[in-house]
Computed example of a mutant assay.
Amino acid sequence: MRCEYFAAGLCASCTVIETPYPDQIAHKQERVAGLLAPLAPDLTWLPARASAEQGFRTKAKMVIAGTVDAPTIGILAADGTGQDLRDCPLYPAALAQAFPVLAEFVTVAKLEPYSVPRRTGELKNVLVSVAPDGALMVRWVMRSTEALARIRKHLPWLQDQLPTLAVASLNVLAEHKAVVEGEREIVLTERETLTMSVNGFDLHLRPQSFFQTNTDVAAALYRQASAWIANARPASLWDLYCGVGGFALHAAAPGRAVTGVEVSEQAIVSAQRTRDERLAEGDQAMADVEFITGDAVGWASSRADAPEGIVVNPPRRGLGESLSRWLDASGARTIVYSSCNPDTLARDLGWMPNYRAEQARLFDMFPHTGHGEVAVVLTRP
């Protein structure tokens, strides 16, 4: 895939974009297999799940810079000024078509872009997600609520220009630090969630809930994990770091007790909503599904008994020694580990010698970079 921004030296985010895509997949596979080989010499690798080469990102984290009258929407250049990336080929048409309107809204609502070198201004980022049906969630990340009244006043203009806008919010990030968003969120629309339909499940994404940026590949990941769980047939299952419930809901089955645990209360509310909707539609697989707000490490280690199956999907830092060793001693018959960081995956598996890694599969969530999602199914001999 050719990117004019990369060719001109304006953006280097896609570090391996000049490598043919099949070779990118092969290199990722070789790296991950090399990390896991000492721990699981008999591991069977299923065919890697590739992605579309462009138009695959369903979430954009765009830095706003420039001026009120001439804002840029993209990334920061090396000198701290803005580099516009509104034509980046990674984004589908629904996002690409929204970027010019969002940039114009900066001018309409007089939102002063934040200047990193001068540490002045208000608007830092705009975070945009698109659902499979084309609906949009737009989050304005500001230093304060100074512009809240103007955003509310001009929101009808934005909704008129972007008829697919479903959810809009203002996020407050007062500190000058390298993070994308803050803790405080003010929802500005009647709707508070974006419906991500994945494999027939309507997952409700709230503004601060985590969701994969490549919905198509995420759907394949859920299907694979569900197939491994179905083959193991556990009577009870935990989904640790469950987010909005993707793995737990896919793995539910009549008579199977499923518990999802996630520290984000927003995500748990979303997962519960999906479960309740499915129950109302007569899906009896949801009858024994519950979702709990809590820290995965503390919650699991406090339980007297472990389930027969466990799914873990931790952030890049991995499970860590405490939870890995707890899992190793848990006695669960089957563990499905979904990892976005092969290095911490290999480290964690080193703390779980009582389990045998049977099958693994690479899911390429992030083409043109060195990152990849890996799922492994572990069994207790």
Rank of each mutant, 00 (worst) to 15 (best):
A52Y: 10
A96F: 02
L362I: 10
L279C: 13
A103S: 14
L102D: 02
V269E: 12
T15N: 08
G309P: 12
G74V: 00
R191F: 04
R333K: 15
A375Q: 08
V269I: 04
G260R: 00
L76P: 12
Q161C: 09
A77F: 07
A220T: 04
K177E: 14
P156L: 02
E18F: 10
S338C: 05
T215E: 05
A257T: 15
P89V: 10
A251P: 09
D305N: 02
G318V: 01
A178R: 10
L111R: 03
G82N: 03
V187L: 12
D348Y: 01
M142I: 12
R278W: 08
A219F: 01
P234T: 05
V101C: 10
C14T: 14
R275Q: 12
G9C: 04
I75L: 06
A271C: 07
A37W: 01
L35N: 02
A225K: 11
R191Q: 15
D133Q: 05
V116H: 02
F366T: 01
R273T: 11
G298N: 07
A135D: 12
F366G: 05
R347G: 06
V130M: 13
E183S: 10
Q266W: 14
S301M: 15
A174Q: 10
V116F: 00
M62G: 03
A230K: 13
F291H: 04
K110D: 08
M196W: 11
